[in-house]
Computed example of a mutant assay.
Amino acid sequence: MDEVERQSEERGWATAKTLAEALPYIQIYDRETVVIKYGGHAMGETAVAKQFAADVVLLKLMGVNPVVVHGGGPQISAMLDKAGVKSNFIDGLRVTDRDTMVVAEMVLSGAVNKEIAHWISVAGKEADVRGIGLSGKDAGLLTVEKTTRTRRDPDSLIEHEVDLGFVGEPTKVDPKLIAGLIASETDDWVPVIAPIGVAEDGMTYNVNADTVAGAVAGSLNAKRMLLLTDVKGVLDKNGQLIRQMTVAEAQGLIDDGTASGGMIPKLQTAMDAVKAGVEAVVILDGRRPHAMLVELFTEHGAGTLVKA
């Protein structure tokens, strides 16, 4: 046996060992729903998008029911820049006037949504696993209300309301369409959802994708919700990854300032999702290859798990 054959045989044994070690976790997630929030700057990289799609297809083939909710902030910003429209942000939320809302819906429900669904369909072609692009406007999936924010004037200390425009918060998720796609006995669908919702008055609103993912996961009583981000998880005061925490501990990290900036809304989303019925939420680095598989099917996971 030459060196090439020997290395090939060793890889084969290593692969078999990995599959055997993953078996208990495969059984845990068999026929369970996992909601995946996919976002960040990595969405714009074709190679990363293809790898993400392949991992989603693998989850489906392993008996998991993946549901993808995606963002698209960088793509919206790029399109607004091309149109010469300046974006303003308040507390991390894009101030969305009518023209910006048109662009946001076009980018999210159009280019980004269909691209993700397409790559899933391509990756799952041989196994007949197909991505299907949706938005919160389809079949009354996501009902929202206008987001309200207040700010305190630093001089007068008087609080005043800030108008974010067409930015919404979920008030109701009707999961029948998603549940029907998951339960289909004739097709293997992977729902891909754009974070656009409709208010009771019929107006369309842009919604934070993390918030939508949490609301959808709660409505489906998901086994897990995976928040794919641009960081490896929640870090302690020494910069070390925290592997696991309770909702109460997560709130404590916010209160004492350990969690700051963009991590605060992610932890809040995780806490809200757990309170809504999701068994656990994991914040992990979506830029790392196969991070979802490592999280779900290995002993130590790949990020920070938040549970009740």
Rank of each mutant, 00 (worst) to 15 (best):
A16P: 00
Q268R: 11
P24T: 02
G303R: 01
G252S: 14
V129A: 05
H70R: 12
M263Q: 09
S109T: 15
G44M: 11
G63T: 03
V190Y: 03
N88L: 11
G39C: 06
S156E: 12
E185D: 14
E161T: 15
L23R: 14
T258V: 14
G218A: 11
K60C: 05
P24Y: 06
T143Y: 13
N238K: 15
A291D: 05
I283Y: 04
V278D: 01
L80P: 02
G277I: 04
L235I: 11
V69E: 01
G165E: 01
V173A: 08
V198F: 02
V64H: 03
I283R: 03
Q7S: 13
I132P: 05
S109K: 14
Q240T: 04
T211N: 08
G44E: 13
L93A: 15
A273Y: 01
V67N: 07
A16Q: 09
A209T: 06
K60L: 00
K50M: 12
G277T: 01
E9F: 15
L220N: 09
V234L: 10
D2A: 07
K114A: 06
V48I: 11
L241H: 03
R243A: 14
Y29P: 00
D138Y: 04
V190S: 03
G40S: 09
G124I: 00
V198E: 13
A276P: 06
L58A: 14
E105P: 12
L305K: 15
T33Q: 10
V278M: 01
S121M: 02
T298G: 00
D236A: 05
L267N: 01
D30G: 01
L164N: 06
N113P: 04
G131I: 00
V129M: 02
S156V: 12
Q244K: 15
L134Q: 05
D2V: 00
P195K: 12
G261W: 10
R224F: 06
V48C: 09
V294N: 07
A222V: 05
V67Y: 07
G303H: 00
T100R: 12
V68C: 05
K176G: 10
Q251N: 14
D187G: 03
H160Q: 13
V282Y: 07
M203V: 10
G301V: 03
A139F: 14
L226C: 06
L134I: 01
V69M: 02
A54F: 02
L61D: 08
H118V: 02
G136M: 06
V282H: 13
G92M: 11
V69L: 05
E21V: 10
E9K: 15
M271N: 03
L305R: 13
S8D: 10
L134P: 07
G110N: 09
G233N: 02
A104G: 10
N208S: 04
S8Q: 09
L228S: 04
G39A: 04
S77I: 02
A49G: 12
G165D: 02
V129F: 02
T171R: 11
Q251I: 12
A213D: 01
E169Y: 10
E3Q: 13
A308P: 12
R288F: 01
R152P: 08
G233R: 07
N65I: 07
A83D: 09
N206D: 08
